[in-house]
Simulated assay, not measured.
Amino acid sequence: MEESLEQLQARHRKEQRDLVSRITQKKKNATKKTRKGVNDECAELERQLRLRQEEELRIFHGQEEELLGAEEDEPAAEPPSTTDDISSQLASTTISSPPPTRPPSQQQPEPGKKRNRQKERLARRAAEVEAASERAALEASTMTDHRGGEKKRMEPIFSSNNLVEHEIAPDGHCLFSSFADGLASASIPLASSSSANIDTMPKVEPYKIVRRTAADYMLSHGDDFAGFLEEPLEEYARKIRDTAEWGGQLELSALANAYGVEIRVVQDGRTEVIVPSGEMGGEEGSEKEKKTVWLAYYRHGFGLGEHYNALRRKEVAT
């Protein structure tokens, strides 16, 4: 039994709801390491469903056009309208005629006048599109602005510490790019004492230098990091050094120690402080002024989810 347009559209909506449920469950079960792969898989599932449904609609409309062509070959009191002038006729009817008491699909044709089924289908589709747009607008108006909420709670900390935010691309390197920007703002060289040979390397992006520094420190202090990993330290360090693997708490700790700096991460209304391991208890009376790198951390509001932005002192912001 062939589906009507309403049945086809109802099935498509159900398939879309089912896919949303599957994607939601997949993303809830994703870990930090698998999140990118899960996002790619979900995008592919959405793409395949969209293409299949579009193809089914094209086939359905093609069959309807064949049936319409057969109907138009029959003698009628009035010649049917062509596809080219249907849109203008529909617009004219909507503007100049009084509102119908019943939907177009339910109106009875005038005696002696052939019913224009294609015109009725176009009217139904236009109404469905308008209704879908209204539902989408209503849903968008009720969605929580997570990123805006996080930013609002961070702004008092930015203001009290004379900081201004600098946007970093959400490309998987954001922690390392933000940290490199913070080093530059604090006038700290990218080449740490543990990676002095970087000065002899060809010109590279700053985040790559920061990645290599973090990986080298973790390898040279394996006892401090291996216990937190689910894979061999060497393999993990290779990914941190050579890929777009996300950085987190372990990398922040490695960078604080490698560069001898205090890292302050502003997140959702509070500030987390990471200090070099030798300064956990605090060093009072130090003659050397401690350098600080500030970062802003977001859980929501970016395409990849979690994200770091750089924070600069206002006097050095550009």
Score class of each variant (00 low, 15 high):
3 E>I: 00
5 L>Y: 09
10 A>I: 05
11 R>L: 01
17 R>E: 13
17 R>D: 10
18 D>T: 05
20 V>A: 08
21 S>Q: 14
23 I>D: 01
23 I>E: 00
24 T>M: 02
24 T>A: 07
24 T>D: 08
27 K>N: 03
31 T>H: 09
33 K>C: 04
35 R>Y: 01
35 R>E: 06
37 G>S: 03
38 V>K: 07
38 V>F: 06
42 C>A: 15
47 R>M: 01
47 R>Y: 09
50 R>E: 13
52 R>G: 11
53 Q>R: 10
54 E>A: 12
56 E>M: 07
58 R>I: 14
72 E>T: 00
75 P>W: 03
77 A>R: 11
80 P>N: 02
86 I>V: 10
90 L>Y: 08
91 A>Y: 06
93 T>N: 13
97 S>N: 12
99 P>D: 10
100 P>R: 05
102 R>T: 09
103 P>I: 12
105 S>R: 15
105 S>Y: 08
107 Q>L: 08
108 Q>Y: 03
111 P>Y: 04
116 N>W: 08
121 R>W: 03
122 L>Q: 10
123 A>V: 01
128 E>R: 15
133 S>W: 13
133 S>N: 15
135 R>C: 03
135 R>H: 06
135 R>K: 13
136 A>M: 12
137 A>G: 03
137 A>D: 08
137 A>L: 08
139 E>H: 11
143 M>Q: 15
147 R>N: 12
149 G>R: 08
149 G>I: 07
151 K>S: 14
154 M>N: 14
155 E>D: 12
155 E>G: 04
158 F>E: 07
159 S>C: 03
159 S>L: 09
164 V>I: 11
171 D>Y: 00
173 H>A: 04
174 C>F: 00
175 L>Y: 04
175 L>G: 06
175 L>P: 05
176 F>V: 01
181 D>M: 06
183 L>N: 01
183 L>F: 00
185 S>N: 15
186 A>V: 04
187 S>A: 05
189 P>V: 05
190 L>P: 03
193 S>H: 14
193 S>Y: 11
194 S>P: 00
194 S>A: 09
195 S>E: 11
197 N>I: 06
201 M>K: 14
204 V>G: 00
207 Y>T: 02
211 R>F: 07
212 R>M: 15
216 D>K: 11
220 S>L: 10
220 S>R: 15
225 F>E: 04
227 G>E: 12
236 Y>N: 05
238 R>M: 07
238 R>Y: 14
241 R>I: 02
242 D>V: 00
245 E>T: 11
245 E>L: 13
247 G>C: 10
249 Q>L: 09
250 L>P: 05
252 L>R: 13
254 A>S: 12
256 A>D: 05
256 A>P: 00
257 N>P: 01
263 I>G: 04
265 V>Y: 01
266 V>D: 07
266 V>F: 08
267 Q>D: 08
268 D>L: 01
271 T>E: 14
272 E>G: 05
272 E>S: 09
275 V>A: 07
275 V>D: 09
276 P>A: 10
277 S>W: 09
279 E>S: 14
282 G>H: 10
282 G>C: 08
282 G>L: 06
288 K>N: 08
289 E>P: 12
292 T>G: 00
293 V>M: 02
299 R>K: 14
303 G>I: 04
304 L>H: 04
306 E>T: 01
308 Y>K: 00
